[in-house]
Amino acid sequence: MSTQTLAVRLKRLLGDETTVALRPRYEGSNICTWIGFKHVNYLVEEAVLDHFRTAELPARELFEEYGLGLDLVELDTRIAHALHMDDLVEATVAPATKDDDDALRFRVTLTVVRDGERLRAATSKVRVLLVPDEYLDAAAPAAELARFTARAPEPEPAGPAPAPAANTSLAEGRGTSAGDPVLEQLTAGENAFGWKWRIPYPYCHFTERIQMSGYLRQMEEVVDLFLADRGISIKQLLDDRRWIPVVPRSSVRILDHALMEEDLYTVYTVEEVYKEHTYTSRMDCYVVRDGQLVKTATGHITHGYAVIENRRDWSLVGFDERVLNAFHGRPAVG
């Protein structure tokens, strides 16, 4: 690829708006035919990847030619209307990179047709970095892309860590939520739930590090474990009341690399319960390196509850005493 051509492609990436038609993955329809927040974010991710393809800077070529991994490092998504199985979603990507930005920024809008009217289903702010591959030999440099190429992050220790327990071996299962000194330190005095877990290769990309979709899966699973730990598991409320959690907003920001087969410490902290209709929690992820805690990601997720009315419809409900007690860390009742 010539230098001039690369510059032209980068100009298209930074200047042209693109639109692509997508459908949610079948995997994301867990309750009736509604699509969960993780797969809404997957649509955002796919739209951004298609934007790079349209500009003729696809993720594969960036890696194979220039040794640069395309990393979504920040997602902030608001969901206004539920998506369903088999929906045809129109995803529009608008470049939002400013002159002084050292990362690529985009705004993504997902729309869907309901009863003949096109509705805005979700909007998202996305930040992308190009991360140099350090696993294989150095690739040819690309000066035009240097501005958006991530430097090796300087670790920012979050404080000393006690000696980790050896409790994520295959003999012990894939993780633990109790009896671990690092988790005890991270959750002490907080309205929080902690989970230690070994990062498997399916959550990673570019050979060594966990990717954004891996953190979205992590966020989904830590919510599931938190609710079960507080006595209001998703299945319990489904069976008792036909209640399901719904997510109007989620965000994840990657701060540092977390590597394949490292132990990831995920802390889920309830921050606010708003008017008995929504609650917001923070997810923080850490690894232990050289005796220090290093925060690798942070994010927030807002939940409400809806009652299933039939196979097509649901409606929002307020929290009752049992659910409020669980969120506040008090014994569940009812």
Rank of each mutant, 00 (worst) to 15 (best):
A139F: 09
P58T: 06
A142M: 08
V182M: 08
G116R: 10
A21P: 05
E276R: 15
P160F: 10
K98P: 00
I301A: 11
G334T: 08
T18E: 07
V288P: 01
T5R: 14
S213L: 14
K295L: 03
V131E: 01
T149S: 01
P331M: 08
D133W: 13
D256Y: 14
P248S: 09
D180F: 02
M85R: 14
G67L: 03
C32M: 11
V113W: 01
N30D: 13
F63R: 02
R241I: 02
P245G: 09
F319T: 02
Q185W: 05
L49S: 04
P153S: 08
P95T: 03
L293F: 03
V128A: 02
A306D: 10
E45V: 10
T54D: 09
I199G: 04
A138H: 10
R174I: 13
A163Y: 06
A21R: 15
G67N: 05
A94G: 06
K98C: 02
V126M: 03
D50T: 09
D99Y: 01
D240L: 01
I232W: 10
A138W: 06
P181Q: 12
T109L: 08
P58G: 06
A91L: 12
V273W: 12
E117S: 13
P202M: 12
R114C: 09
T19D: 06
R12D: 04
T92H: 11
A178T: 15
S233N: 04
W197D: 12
A80Y: 15
P164M: 10
H257Y: 14
V323G: 00
D284E: 15
R242V: 00
R198N: 11
S177W: 14
P162Q: 09
L145A: 07
Y26P: 00
N30L: 10
G173D: 13
V128F: 04
P248D: 13
R105G: 00
A258K: 01
E262C: 10
A161E: 04
D240N: 04
L136G: 13
R242C: 03
